[in-house]
């Protein structure tokens, strides 16, 4: 492999529900600095859960019981909670799926964008405001004053997502978790937003953990990919390799199930039961081994 430094390294990460069932099954993955790493899978695969574990916002009851998360050389588990929050706040950011729920409907856009800079990172208010203005220009918003003074409902879906992207990049994080950031958007807007994320990511040298269910989006935005099923990484590969020669049967099945307008007749084979049976076996084997190791 190249000597590129790792931005994020996750090793054998397991998380459980209160009843002891694992939602993440010994997940390991590396994200190089400045690289987009896609987490792809169907619902319940645990792809969002990985981002949440990293950011320290696992849902109530879900607990990280094993494994390590290393952000730019620092193992998060070794930090006290307050220090961990400070590090996460300074070095990471989130682009959420639904900009309408992520924004407070009763506050203007401007203050919502500066909050993180002033309250968490301790910037002076004036420089935070200047930075936000700069970032709005970077995401091609032509009338920054109107947007800063607007309430979320006054902006279109695409505009709201631009605002959140601008806010995410504002403090120059090293790593951004983008959780299905284009799923709620129309295709033409999706393309603009993907282009924008790719541009900013390259210009700022930011690594992105890009969560999506859409293999098409994966192909266009990411350099490396982890395919997830039932909280397990079933295949991990550089993007060109994954699409040229998918190795795992589940990856192949997902690709065959994804419709393509260019191949109308051959597309859309449902994932067959042999693949699902094989996956169930893999899950069981992983769980048996884990239980043996943990009494």
């Amino acid at each position: 492999m190249t000597a590129q430094p790792l931005c994020l390294s996750i090793g054998a990460l397991s998380a459980t529900l209160p009843n002891g069932d694992r939602v993440l099954r010994s997940v390991s993955l590396d994200v190089a600095a400045g690289e987009v790493h896609a987490l792809v899978g169907e619902s319940g695969a645990g792809k969002s859960m990985i981002g949440k574990a990293l950011l320290g916002v696992l849902p109530p009851g879900v607990r990280q019981v094993e494994g390590s998360i290393t952000l730019e050389g620092t193992r998060l588990e070794t930090l006290a909670p307050a220090a961990r929050r400070r590090l996460i706040g300074a070095r990471t950011a989130l682009i959420p799926q639904d900009p309408l729920t992520a924004l407070n409907p009763s506050r203007r856009i401007g203050p919502q964008m500066t909050d993180r800079l002033t309250h968490i990172l301790g910037w002076p208010a004036a420089s935070a405001r200047a930075r936000i203005r700069e970032m709005l220009a970077e995401v091609h918003i032509r009338e920054p004053d109107r947007v800063i003074a607007a309430y979320p409902h006054e902006l279109s879906g695409g505009m709201r997502q631009r605002v959140l992207i601008a806010a995410a990049f504002a403090a120059e994080p090293r790593l951004i978790v983008a959780d299905e950031p284009t799923t709620a958007l129309d295709v033409t807007v999706q393309k603009q937003i993907l282009r924008l994320i790719a541009d900013l990511q390259r210009r700022h040298g930011t690594a992105i953990l890009f969560v999506t269910h859409d293999l098409g989006v994966v192909a266009k935005i990411s350099q490396s990919v982890s395919v997830l099923y039932a909280g397990m990484v079933v295949e991990r590969a550089p993007a060109p390799e994954l699409f040229a020669t998918p190795r795992h049967a589940y990856t192949k099945a997902l690709m065959a199930a994804t419709p393509r307008y260019t191949h109308p007749a051959s597309s859309l084979q449902p994932v067959n039961s042999a693949v699902l049976a094989e996956l169930a076996l893999e899950v069981r084997a992983a769980d048996t081994e884990w239980k043996r190791a943990h009494g």
């Binding site: 295709v187 999706q190 393309k191 282009r195 859409d214 098409g216 266009k220 393509r260």
Partner: peptide, 17 residues
Amino acid sequence: ELIAAIPLPEIDDDWLT
């Protein structure tokens, strides 16, 4: 435009631009 905006699950380095 609508057709061109669909991201196909295939590597295509120029698609975004």
